[in-house]
């Protein structure tokens, strides 16, 4: 149990997927303009990451059995893409309110490197299924946390007086650097 909590905190805060591992930067910069979008995107990532772990875990065991673990990148991305497609159709059909909230973000997540990254990290560290799930949920929550925090920062950024050359992307990146700096304070806790 203690180990699980350590993995959860480690994945969500200390080694934050966006701010210290640089995965999913495109989604981070693209959807953090509004608080509402950032929450939707974050939850969609938690959802996909958790279920992607559930489907990639047996795939890896299968690949291990036939001694073809080098195919993991190809196999994982295919399985994830397939899962996202099916999940989108199923949610649209059976849970329309959820589709309305998360649906638009689902297709974008297939090419989000955080999802593939989490799946590969899980097998590289040889986690058990339970640990993999905790790690994935933690990573997803960390992504959501970074996105929501940064949406708040950007809200202030919009109304501030920025030098002409820094307007737009440069100012956003420098702000991200400062948010990332604050997460460095957690280093070494676990």
């Amino acid at each position: 149990m203690k180990e699980m909590i350590m993995i959860l905190i480690g994945a969500s805060i200390i080694n934050n997927v966006v701010l210290s591992q640089f995965m999913g930067i495109c989604a981070f910069l693209g959807t953090s303009k509004q608080l509402k979008n950032s929450v939707g995107m974050g939850l969609a990532v938690v959802f996909v990451m958790t279920f992607a772990t559930l489907v990639t875990y047996p795939v890896y065991i299968l690949l291990d059995k036939i001694d073809a673990t080098y195919l993991k990148t190809v196999a994982f991305i295919l399985v994830i893409a397939l899962f996202v497609q099916l999940a989108e159709m199923a949610i649209k059909r059976f849970i329309p309110p959820l589709y309305k909230a998360l649906g638009v973000y689902l297709p974008l997540i297939t090419t989000n490197c955080a999802v593939l990254g989490a799946a590969i990290t899980n097998v590289d560290r040889q986690y058990t299924l339970a640990k993999s799930l905790v790690n994935s949920v933690g990573t997803g929550l960390g992504f959501t946390l970074a996105l929501v925090l940064f949406a708040g920062v950007r809200y202030r950024l919009e109304s501030s007086d920025i030098p002409e050359t820094f307007k737009g992307v440069p100012a956003t990146l420098v702000a991200a650097a400062i948010v990332s700096l604050s997460f460095m304070g957690f280093a070494g806790i676990v």
């Binding site: 210290s20 591992q21 820094f166 100012a171 990146l173 420098v174 650097a177 400062i178 460095m184």
Partner: peptide
């Protein structure tokens, strides 16, 4: 460190 990456790219 990670923060420096964002900063450098921004600059």
């Amino acid at each position: 460190m990670p923060a420096g990456g964002f900063f450098t790219l921004g600059i």
